[in-house]
Design a protein around this nucleic acid. Structure first.
Lengths: 143, 143
DNA sequence: ATTTTTGCTATTAAATCAGTAGCAAAAGTA
DNA sequence: TACTTTTGCTACTGATTTAATAGCAAAAAT
């Protein structure tokens, strides 16, 4: 259990955990689309390779952003769910999406509208809505 | 000028630009510590290698998050400054720091206090303060 | 005129990412 | 019950990115 962080900087420490091209997209799929299984994550538009997906899920589980479990009804499927620590990334994701909408749309002409997903409302309301919605999904999934 | 983004997702698009282990740390050094030169960035506690720093600065300039220029007084030193697009990353950085403070401190026992930097105040006040402070630095630098 | 500083590039090695194939076990279907 | 499909991966190969160090030319400082 050694300290593998580059420095004592909180920003750098976060990047040491989720500062790669995929981790936050997995969290996005869970938070915003309710994805739960390996298969679910495999079919994102960004097409993550199974090897990378596998290693990222392990890493996120090790760092307690997600849990992995099987439900009694299905002994094959692994169910991945965000922990509270993971759910609390919602404000970060919201700010990134708002920045992107405002600043990258000119570069990425294919970018989705964020109004559809309700991101043009009050910032903290949006974030809380996403979080509470997800917490309900967890309840429903685990019964 | 082709579209090199992985998808139309705003989150993924941002990660395509600053989703590596170093870009946001460079923005951090500029915003929070007023760093402006290659040398300044070289001496961060995370010790970025010159080759990576060089390529990241080029990339950030290409994507218009920073500008690069020489001041009349010094024809050797390059001065790197954040554009408005770069300054607007402040809310993202604030949220990441707050998440880290709350959720990674247990893992990274060497983490700095964020109270010292004033991050325990009202969120949008903190962000705006950082941004206005930086805009003033730009003014002072360019005269 | 000499030394130091700055802003890099070059080089090599290591780590990570990406794409495809394939496979065992569980689940679904006939 | 046998067969097919689905799921959740692992293995493999190659490409790309990152990391660490050395070094160097031009400007600035002494």
């Amino acid at each position: 259990m050694e300290n593998n962080f580059r420095s004592g900087c909180p920003l750098a420490s976060t990047l040491d955990i989720v500062g790669d091209k995929w981790s936050l997209l997995i969290v996005r799929d869970m938070l915003l689309q309710g994805k739960k299984t390996f298969k679910d994550f495999s079919i994102s538009p960004e097409k993550i390779a199974p090897g990378i997906l596998s290693s990222r899920l392990k890493w996120l589980e090790e760092n307690e952003l997600i849990t992995k479990q099987k439900l009694p009804a299905n002994q094959k499927e692994n169910i991945y769910l965000l922990t509270e620590k993971g759910i609390e990334l919602a404000p970060v994701i919201t700010e990134i999406i708002l920045w992107s909408d405002k600043n990258l749309r000119v570069q990425n002409t294919e970018m989705f509208s964020i109004a559809e997903a309700g991101f043009n409302q009050d910032k903290s309301k949006v974030t809380e809505g996403i979080q509470n919605n997800y917490r309900q999904l967890v309840q429903e999934t685990l019964g």
